[in-house]
């Protein structure tokens, strides 16, 4: 693991800028920004699996739900402190993620996607029928708010600050993971599964680690979502809701970049809000956007920005007088 200083410094600057903007935002923008930050956590964690390991899981939305319901249950029913419930929810989701991964990694490619689709559907149905724990279709009502942090202003500002710090931690953890030997092994699996195996890379451990990593942070995002909303309902965790949405965030943002999915989350949370009149066609718009990016810009927004920066550098280099 090397070269973490630059991502650390750059992400710190971005985080500081985002935190500095928090006091300027009204309640509505704070809420939308908080949602974008939670989806960014989800998307970055998913990018480790999709972008760096090459596995398309459609169970990520259900894992997000596991974290949400776990935190809801721990804080509302078991009266556990939120600060304890947050890591506990993430850990429990990671354990469930490991079980799902053991089952799902018996397959590959399309079969893996279909199998995780089934797991996502089962998870959503479980949230509906296990009404004693989840509240069923009526949702889980009365989830306590996060304890106040006096330094960070109003409750809505506090939520956004915590969510932004969550994005920062997730990004750094994901960067560290993909640059570790396990992360490099994941990339080898993505590039050529058979060759990686032939080279003696322990692909089972690598891809299991990527899945568990994603599940841990999906659980953390779910826990934050539950405590920030004070209410969760199964429809938020359906395959066609969070499960599909996270794929779009990563593809549109830019797979395999970690920072691209953050841009995707911000753009695709802010855009539907600013175009609320078009919500009838939101799923259609999501599908169309996904198609357009896959066909015309498979590297997402991040790809555009990287290419743009490269062209800019080339142009500048061309203008400089020769020695």
């Amino acid at each position: 693991m090397h070269g973490l200083t630059r991502p650390l410094l750059v992400s710190l600057v971005v985080l500081a800028a985002a935190l500095a903007a928090v006091p300027l935002l009204n309640e509505y923008v704070l809420y939308v920004a908080m949602l974008a930050a939670l989806f960014a956590i989800l998307a970055v964690s998913f990018d480790v699996l999709l972008g760096f390991t090459g596995y398309l899981s459609l169970a990520h939305g259900a894992l997000f739900g596991v974290g949400a319901y776990c935190c809801a249950y721990l804080t509302a029913r078991a009266e556990v402190s939120f600060w304890l419930a947050l890591p506990a929810s993430a850990l429990l989701t990671a354990v469930i993620g490991a079980l799902v991964a053991v089952l799902a990694f018996r397959t590959r490619d399309l079969y893996f996607a279909v199998l995780t689709l089934g797991i996502g559907l089962v998870g959503h149905q479980l949230f509906l029928v296990a009404s004693g724990i989840t509240g069923g279709i009526g949702g889980f009502v009365g989830i306590p708010s996060m304890p106040e942090i006096a330094l960070f202003g109003s409750p809505s500002q506090q939520k956004l600050v915590v969510a932004l710090i969550g994005v920062w931690i997730t990004y750094l953890a994901a960067t560290a993971f993909v640059r570790s030997p396990l992360g490099v092994a994941c990339q080898a699996v993505r590039e050529d599964h058979v060759l990686a195996q032939a080279l003696g890379i322990r692909i089972a451990v690598a891809r299991l680690s990527a899945f568990v990593f994603g599940a841990f942070f999906a659980g953390a995002a779910g826990a934050l979502f539950a405590t920030f909303s004070n209410f969760v309902a199964p429809e938020s965790f359906a395959v066609l809701a969070a499960g599909f949405q996270v794929v779009v965030l990563v593809v549109v943002g830019g797979m395999g970049t970690l920072w691209g999915p953050i841009l995707g989350a911000v753009l695709l949370t802010a855009l539907p809000e600013s175009l609320r009149v078009a919500s009838t066609y939101s799923l259609l718009a999501y599908g169309a956007l996904l198609l357009a990016f896959i066909i015309f810009a498979p590297r997402g927004i991040a790809g555009f920005l990287i290419d743009g920066a490269r062209r800019l550098r080339s142009a500048r280099a061309g203008r400089e007088p020769s020695a």
Partner: peptide
């Protein structure tokens, strides 16, 4: 938009 998240955003 008949969704909890959309409803909360609209209320905010």
């Amino acid at each position: 938009q008949a969704s909890p998240t959309g409803g909360v955003a609209a209320l905010r």
